[in-house]
Amino acid sequence: MVLMLEDRHLLRRLRAGDKDALRRIYEKYIDDLLRVVLSLLPDIQAAEDCLHDVFVDFAGSVGGLMIHSNLKSYLISCVANKARDRLRKNIRQSKCQPEQLCSQPISASPLMQLIDAEESARVFKALAELPYQQREVFVLHVQGQMRFREIAGLLGVSINSVQSKYRYAIEKLRKILEEKPK
């Protein structure tokens, strides 16, 4: 997959120093990036710092960047790398409750909305219980919409390993979610 046309234009403008292009990229992808980073690091401050570092690095080095995937995947990969770095450095995180973070998902009816909100909150909590590697693969694939081969490339592991982690993640999530709420 190569760079999307609009993103190509935005990058070109950005390389010419256009701040509006930077803002447009930010607005275009912040929802996706926030979802990924908060699922990886369920801590608001850590997530904000992570996004901060990603965008500062991105803007500061855009002239020399060689982005061969699409821009969204590139930014999500950067977020995943930063999140992993923070964990490796064992930067202290304060877990927050999903209700602090989650807004109402969009559903067809108010009833479904309530049910989905509750269910989504459960999934979010369940995600936090996964081992980080499994969570990372799940989040990148489902929320980051990255393909297994892209994730394998990002993590430097085989596609089989990624798929295996994904299966484990699904199984564990299923087990957690099927337990009756305490």
Binding site: I30, D31, R35, S103, P105, R122, V139, V142, Q143
Partner: peptide, 10 residues
């Protein structure tokens, strides 16, 4: 599906 629908307050 549920994971995709998780929305965060921006």
């Amino acid at each position: 599906r549920l994971a995709k629908k998780i929305q965060f307050d921006i």
